[in-house]
Simulated scan of single mutants.
Amino acid sequence: MTTSAPLRRLPVGATYNLRDVGGYPIGGAARTRWGRLFRSDAARFTADTDLAGLGLRTVIDLRDDVEVVALPTGLDAVVPTVVRRPLDPRALLGTLDDGSSDPLGELYVALIRERGPRLAEIVSDLAAPGALPALVHCAAGKDRTGVVIALVLSAIGVPDDVVATDYALTAEYLTAEFFASVHAESGATDSADETLRGARPESVTALLRVLADEYDGARAYLVGHGVPDEAIDRLHAALTD
């Protein structure tokens, strides 16, 4: 897709929440590159969409089997590599504190603590030579995708407040119509519970705080779960202007 100026949200396919994570500060004058990493909800893509204009080489689908069967995206017909990496947050929902003021923050922290090897596998997929441009998506592009994108951005040096702001943009795009359609079509965990539909920056900030306090940051977390330092360096270079 060629435009006179980069777009944050992309009107491609039947998506509500397809976004480019380019243009974010990393340090000094450096910024994340536009057109290299995208995040999205799930949608049906067909040959008459302009998805091909994104030049995707890799798609990472974080949904489980039930969701994939209920809503096939068709991406395998237009993207060279489509990888299934289900994160399975459903099993973690029962561990959340019923009285929590931030159940989403608790869920994201639980994903960090309980899904380390899978999260490292996903980041390794993105860091593989030739993997970019890439799209990461789940059902809503909010919870599972939000955790993965937060990890990637934080690991390459994007400041916490910017990572949280990127996450919170989801609240602008996921409408009541979206949640109704997801519930009807896929039963996705991302949006099945009314209390889990928000996207407040505090929720991803809670995740980033745990990464800093318990793992010495996102990069150390990923290295500790098996992502080589050189793979993160390669991802940093590929995502940096």
Rank of each mutant, 00 (worst) to 15 (best):
Y108E: 11
R113F: 00
R113M: 00
R113D: 15
R113Y: 00
R115D: 13
R115W: 00
G116R: 03
P117Y: 00
L119M: 11
I122R: 01
I122K: 02
V123I: 11
S124K: 04
S124F: 07
D125P: 06
A127S: 12
A128R: 14
P129N: 08
P129Y: 10
G130E: 07
G130R: 03
A131L: 06
A131F: 05
A134W: 08
A134D: 09
L135V: 01
V136N: 07
C138T: 01
A139F: 11
A139R: 03
A140H: 06
G141L: 03
R144L: 02
G146F: 11
V147H: 05
V147T: 13
V148C: 08
I149Q: 05
L151M: 10
L151I: 10
V152Y: 05
L153S: 06
S154T: 11
V158F: 04
P159G: 01
D160G: 02
D160T: 13
D161W: 14
D161G: 01
V162E: 14
V163W: 12
V163M: 03
V163E: 05
A164N: 04
A164K: 07
A164T: 05
A164R: 06
T165L: 14
T165E: 15
T165S: 14
Y167C: 00
L169Q: 12
E172R: 13
E172D: 14
L174W: 07
L174M: 07
